[in-house]
């Protein structure tokens, strides 16, 4: 696949870096750098990569949310790749401005789609993240339409967009645009970030969402 998507992987486990490198290169995505600290995304070839795949739990300890925040504030497109399926942390990463949050239990397919979407400035919502959004109890959560909620829940439950489309009698692209609309609603709340602003602006431009919906 001849596209110019480039990525940098930040993960403290060599085996994960190798695995991700293999998955990405098999999908035609060029891995320009990889390393065990966020430095690799700021210096050398990594500084120019279009997408940063960031492991949130570098060397055990506390989640690397500050590293994520710095990258996002610089306008970098970040896909968070975490070993923990923790709803609260997932929602926190979206709030900071990550374009996707994937757990390591989710396979190559989701990672490649998330990186591609991020390179184009789009969000990507894997099933586990859809579950986290559907179960969100925070005060500040945006109001979702019943249809949007249904799409979110069905996607979480089935892990198959084709299945969701069939179940709800809609097309595959409608499923995707519902998911994108939900993410745009989430991008419009909380702290400002270049990636979030771009997500909202693009959605309004494309007519995906009206200003009234936000």
């Amino acid at each position: 696949m001849a596209d110019d998507v480039t990525a940098v992987v930040v993960d403290d486990h060599p085996v994960v870096r190798a695995g991700v490198a293999h998955w990405l290169s098999s999908a035609g995505i060029t891995l320009v750098a990889s390393g065990e600290s966020a430095e690799v995304a700021w210096t050398g070839p990594g500084a120019g990569a279009s997408v940063v795949v960031l492991d949130l739990h570098l060397s055990g300890g506390t989640p690397a949310t500050s590293a994520l925040r710095r990258l996002v504030e610089d306008g970098r497109k970040v896909v968070v790749y975490s070993m923990r399926a923790d709803d609260e942390i997932a929602l926190q990463c979206l709030e900071i401005g990550a374009l996707s949050y994937l757990t390591k239990a989710e396979g190559a397919d989701h990672l490649v789609q998330a990186v591609r979407a991020a390179a184009a400035g789009h969000s990507y919502t894997p099933p586990a993240l859809a579950g986290a959004l559907a179960g969100d109890r925070s005060e500040t959560r945006p109001a979702l339409s019943p249809r949007e909620t249904e799409v979110l829940v069905e996607w979480f439950q089935s892990e198959s967009k084709e299945f969701v489309a069939q179940r709800l009698n809609i097309t595959l692209s409608t499923v995707n645009s519902h998911l994108e609309r939900i993410r745009v609603k989430y991008a419009a709340i909380g702290r400002q970030a270049p990636t979030k602003a771009a997500l909202v602006a693009r959605a309004i431009q494309d007519g995906l969402i009206g200003l009234d919906d936000l």
Partner: peptide, 8 residues
């Protein structure tokens, strides 16, 4: 079987 859990 895969088991996914969301919410508290």
């Amino acid at each position: 079987v895969s088991l996914a859990v969301s919410g508290t």
